[in-house]
Write a protein that binds this DNA or RNA. Structure first.
Lengths: 351, 351
DNA sequence: GCTTAGCACTCAAATCCCTCGAGTGCTAAT
DNA sequence: ATTAGCACTCGAGGGATTTGAGTGCTAAGC
């Protein structure tokens, strides 16, 4: 039965090729040098001669998984090669409990959301020695808790809005008629009594609906106040992220090209592209990995991004992750990102 | 009279040396190459042969103003050389009115203080192509305008404090007894009625003085609230700064050393050293210049910092400036920093 | 039919060598 | 005091050469 034999053979061949692929990628990630047939022969555990390994590597190169920088160098993984590595070959290395404990310590000690976010970013960066990033959480539901109007100079009113238990937003608005302190108080009282505890969107809509004539200065004030609600919502939507440890990236040989580095840093400053990438993963379930230009941005040519969403009450409210050279230790980074996302979620729930 | 003749001679010699020094520094700043005797002979306007110029340069080198990277290169200014250049030789080039107008446009359009600060930083960076930095303003006088206590869950109270017309500070505090909403309201009313318009320090001291027994929960609350005042004051004191255009620094050849660059960026992140330098200039009258390691920090070895304080109502509240390679176009940078400080002061006064 | 030893070949990196040229310091002439 | 002249230095640039790691191919071996 030649068929069966062929099958078995080709399966085992294939498996062997994959095993070699795995060892090669791991090796390259470890020391950043192109890997040659001899090295691989010694390192793979399989007892194969360099010549055989060369044949196999040639196959892998034909498949587009490997490439050689030049004829007389070893081989390095292509983006496609990394992709198949993380998809099928990777053995994720879970963090040991001491490490998990360390992250917990850091995150559970602080109460302020913003502090928490930036600490999470610091953690990611210091553990992985890559750049860590965490998006500012956005909450779908913004509940009005309390509103306050304070007169500043004439016709300028400071609006203070407490939402979601303890977040305070404030803004100065201009009104086109002088309003007395008691009038302002009255307006605030009305809103607080009538609408506290409702979602900001709802409050806004109801106020607009019930007062659509809006000739009365007081109504106008309230309406204007509610446009702040819009802005608050906008700010929530208009995302931002916290970045830590960019300088870590300077340590990688791949990044020695100062011009590339500059472009990358400029992308960090511009934020738009990075945010777009993070956006892509906000609706994904678990850890996501973008390798090289998969992200669609050429600045990230030699970079990979590993992300995971974090949530409160089963609702995804942000994304965190790291960014580093394609040649990063995925098996570790993935765990770190994953665990940090989970712990940050837990820490936020406590608030 | 040999004495007179000698005097005259030596004066003119000295002047000639200084003129050459000036041309040399300008030239080096312009193109970053060591300047040789021939170049200088052509460029100086003085009709002197290269040989003479070499003699003069040798003198300047003896004085510690110049050095040569190696035997067969031209000369470049030492830190001491730059120092004497900016102190005595520099002809500051005022900005033309169009440029001033541009800065004004940018700054006068925005009302929010924080926005203003970061725009000033952006301006500095984009005009000079160096890194711009502006400290967050600190005000000596923090006037309490209004305070509000909001009950969160049991024993957690959100304190919202409005100071200085429109700045809002808020914090959650824990109390050790349940307090009703009306009790909280009462406490707030008391403080607002009694202390609004006073300086926060004073308010704090008076509350502590008048209630030093503090067994009553209400008093305790107020006292605790006043510890927030401390924190607010602390935050004001605990300075911070806004940085823009770090990536500009990557364009300078001096900064091609990736390791130095990393150290510099890390200093930016750590903030402490940079803040210390800025601190030094907060009490100086006008523009200040730190050249190379004069600042006392070796990370800034090849960098200069040009700063100017900005004020509101004749009170200095912050410092702004730029940071770049020692080889920066001082005559222009100084004007830019100076003008931006003045315009930022003016823009802040409008608020 | 796979595996592998052998071999010729390739190519980057390192090293050496050479030249070129910008610049210097010194000396002697003006 | 200035300057022309000259010998000298030293980095930068440009081959040439060597080295070594690595490849592909072929033919022999299991």
């Amino acid at each position: 039965m030649p068929k069966k034999s062929a099958d078995k053979q080709s399966t085992s061949r294939n498996e062997r090729a994959l095993a070699l692929m795995k060892v090669l990628v791991e090796r390259y990630i470890r020391d950043g040098q192109p890997v040659g047939s001899q090295t691989l022969a010694k390192d793979s555990g399989l007892s194969l001669s360099p010549a055989t390994i060369r044949n196999i590597m040639a196959d892998l190169e034909d498949m587009g998984l490997l490439e050689s920088p030049h004829t007389s160098a070893g081989r390095i993984p292509t983006a496609k090669g990394y992709r198949m590595f993380v998809d099928s070959l990777l053995t994720v290395k879970p963090l040991n409990s001491r490490e998990v404990e360390g992250i917990k310590q850091q995150l559970y000690n602080s109460t302020d959301t913003n502090l928490l976010i930036s600490q999470a970013s610091d953690m990611l960066s210091s553990i992985t020695h890559l750049a860590g990033l965490v998006t500012i959480p956005r909450r779908e539901r913004v509940l009005l808790q309390h509103i306050e109007f304070l007169p500043l100079s004439s016709r300028r009113v400071l609006v203070i809005m407490v939402v979601n238990n303890q977040e305070v937003q404030n803004r100065v608005i201009h009104v086109d008629r002088d309003l007395s302190q008691s009038q302002l108080q009255q307006a605030a009282n009305f809103i607080n009594a009538e609408y506290a505890g409702l979602e900001l969107n709802t409050v806004r809509d109801r106020i607009f609906a019930s007062m659509h004539d809006a000739r009365d200065a007081m109504h106008k004030l309230m309406q204007e106040a509610m446009t702040i609600a819009d802005q608050v919502l906008d700010i929530q939507q208009d995302e931002d992220y916290v970045l830590a440890g960019q300088t870590n990236l300077m340590n990688y040989a791949e990044m020695c090209d100062i011009d590339k580095l500059r472009q990358l840093f400029e992308a960090f400053n511009a934020k738009r592209d990075i945010l777009h990438i993070l956006d892509q993963s906000i609706h994904a379930e678990g850890t996501q990995i973008f390798i090289g230009e998969e992200s669609g941005y050429s600045v990230l040519g030699d970079c990979s991004v590993v992300t995971a969403p974090y949530k409160v009450n089963d609702e995804v409210i942000g994304v965190l992750g790291v960014i580093g050279p394609t040649r990063m230790p995925y098996e570790r980074v993935i765990s770190v990102v994953d665990v940090t996302a989970k712990l940050l979620s837990a820490a936020l729930r406590l608030e």
